[in-house]
Design a protein around this nucleic acid. Structure first.
Length: 601
DNA sequence: CTAGGGTTAG
């Protein structure tokens, strides 16, 4: 009874007072500790029972193996599985269903196939736990075919296997298929559970379907299902991705009501969400209030500060993290280096870059080199950045060359820009962004024939600039604005307002950037040029629908363009608004005509 | 027939 109520302490007290203990009582207690994640305690009992002359049976072994596998100690679990086998036990459905997820995690497909064979031989292939574990494993192996085969041969009304199948599909890039099948399940009147809904929410928020994730959340509650402490952190990233602050806050309140605010995953997800919504102070508040923190929480707050260009705070958190005894990982250093790179902190950047492997035993990865390239380029040391690329022990990828090319655009460096662009055209020939960047550099030098040449190349390859897209949350609704898309009901007002603003801007001595390169390259619809870029539209929509003085927040799927940057600086001053624009990788905080990025992005 | 064990969601 105590074990079933998760009162492990009470159970242990009773257990300790028992004079005579048999296999059953030992097994119950081992499983109890395993469920609570107290593997060491379980291990103690497992060896104690043998010294007390009680031989472990199947159930004792299974409890022990479950303990290891559920705690992420996959290798230990699998080793025990093999020991059990060699001691003459024949693992049953329980054992196998614990061991399969571990095999999937380790991507040991040889062992996976062996165990699948064993399952068939033993005739336990119709056990529902085994089936869902098999589906899960093949999903983790990226064996969509094997996975579907197991599912097709199973009872398709068994919710566990259906859930494993849906997750497996999304995991293998087949989100849309998963969505279709989910709808089919629902139409068939199948009893869906929290796991099903959570899985769909997670698939959406991990695959750019953020509005859909929010919709699923509402739908599951309409169906009378209670979201739990796994559902919530699966949903929160969706709010951050589209900077839906009001939705995010509502879910924050929901977590308080559900009493799950103390959960590390919930807390860490909130930190990340508030940071992405431009509210870094709220991130910090959530962080400070967390009862327990882990690596994810520390990385979340550091990433938040880095995203906001707050290098001092990022470094301060790093010191606090070390004082707290938390060991950093690769991501921690990415946060540190990206914070340094945005602020031109060359000395600190080099310090963390070198201490990373020397003091922390973490090898620098591509993203760390990319930060160093950005950092050195930012302070004008483009040649030094290039020499790092030439010397780095890993093959530079598109991120590295992209970092160099972007910096060359900022510094109008043609020779290195051409080198970087050439590499990028080989690495990712279909990415229109690279062509646009190089063309920007040519345009800044007035080399119009080169600009035209690139435009022709793009045209012949059928490449178009990715459509710019911006989001703004107004009241309870998230508006999406696509560059050149006139379908928004308030578009007429938006254009009128933009007109008025441009008159004011001209009066103030602002003239649109003559290097309107993108349009030169593109020659896209005149309409798009007239409407302006999506971030401009979103900002103006915000101006129209909020009261004066209220801050605005816009997010964009691409790098903000020079012209929009200049226009928004003007608006922040002229309209007296604080405007936050979240770019692909950082925040621009416009206030009184100045932007926090210091003109470098 | 027989106490005690398991899968799928972050």
């Amino acid at each position: 009874m105590y074990l079933k109520c998760h009162k492990i302490g009470d159970a242990q007290m009773l257990f300790d007072r028992m004079p005579e203990k048999d296999v059953v009582i030992y097994s119950a207690m081992i499983a109890g500790f395993s469920r609570e994640g107290l593997v060491d305690k379980a291990k103690e009992l497992f060896s104690e029972m043998r010294t007390m002359g009680v031989e472990p049976n199947m159930v004792s072994w299974n409890g022990m193996i479950a303990g290891f596998c559920n705690r992420g100690l996959h290798i230990e679990g699998l080793m025990l599985f093999q020991t059990m086998f060699s001691e003459g036990f024949r693992p049953d459905g329980s054992t196998v269903s614990c061991v399969l997820p571990a095999i999937g995690q380790l991507e040991d497909s040889v062992m996976g196939t062996q165990v699948h064979g064993y399952v068939n031989k033993q005739g336990i292939g119709s056990d529902k736990y085994v089936i869902s574990a098999l589906i899960d494993m093949y999903g983790k192996f990226s064996c969509a075919l094997e996975m579907s085969k197991v599912f097709d041969e199973s009872d398709q009304m068994e919710i566990g296997s259906c859930n494993a199948f849906l997750t497996g599909l999304s995991r293998n890039g087949l989100v849309d298929t998963a969505l279709d099948i989910f709808r089919r399940f629902k139409a068939q009147g199948m009893e869906l559970n929290v796991v099903t809904w959570t899985s769909m929410i997670a698939s959406c928020s991990q695959n750019g379907k953020d509005l859909e994730a929010l919709e699923f959340f509402r739908e599951m509650q309409n169906e009378g299902l209670e979201p739990n402490s796994i559902t919530i952190p699966s949903l929160i990233p969706a709010c951050g991705n589209i900077a839906a602050l009001m939705h995010g806050k509502a879910i924050h309140c929901f977590s308080i009501r559900k009493g799950i605010l103390g959960d590390v995953y919930v807390g860490s997800a909130l930190i990340d969400m508030y940071a992405k919504c431009g509210r870094i102070q709220l991130s910090r508040l959530c962080f400070d209030k967390m009862p327990t923190r882990n690596l994810v929480s520390w990385n979340a707050i550091m990433r938040g500060y880095a995203m906001h260009g707050k290098a001092r705070e990022t470094i301060e958190m790093f010191h606090m993290m070390q004082q707290s005894g938390q060991t950093p990982d690769v991501i921690t250093f990415t946060c540190l280096l990206s914070a340094c790179s945005q602020n031109g902190l060359t000395e600190e950047g080099w310090h963390y870059f070198t201490s990373m492997s020397r003091e922390h035993g973490i090898e620098a990865k591509l993203e760390h080199y990319a930060c160093m390239v950005t950092l050195l380029s930012r302070v004008g040391k483009l040649e030094e950045a290039y020499s790092i690329i030439k010397k780095m022990p890993i093959k530079p990828d598109a991120c590295i060359w992209g970092a160099l090319l972007s910096s060359c655009r900022v510094h109008h460096n043609l020779s290195l820009g051409e080198i970087a662009a050439k590499k990028l055209f080989q690495l990712e020939p279909d990415n229109p962004g690279n062509y646009v960047l190089l063309s920007n550099i040519y345009a800044s030098k007035g080399m119009w024939s080169e600009v035209n040449r690139i435009r022709d190349v793009m045209k012949s390859m059928g490449l178009r600039k990715n459509p710019g897209c911006s989001w703004i949350e107004l009241g309870r609704k998230v508006h999406m604005l696509l560059a050149g898309d006139k379908s928004h009901p308030q578009m007429k007002q938006i254009l009128e307002k933009l007109d008025k603003l441009s008159i004011e801007m001209n009066k103030a001595g602002y003239h649109p950037d003559t290097k309107m390169v993108l349009q030169d390259v593109e020659e896209q619809d005149k309409a798009q040029i007239l409407c302006g870029h999506s971030e401009k539209l979103a900002v103006v929509l915000g101006l129209l629908n909020t009261s004066p003085g209220q801050p605005l927040q816009v997010i964009k799927n691409l790098r903000i363009c020079d012209d929009c940057h200049a226009v928004i600086k003007f608006i922040s001053c002229f309209e007296g608004r604080e405007i936050y624009v979240r770019d692909t990788n950082r925040f621009h905080h416009f206030k009184d005509g100045v932007c926090s990025c210091g003109e470098y992005w």
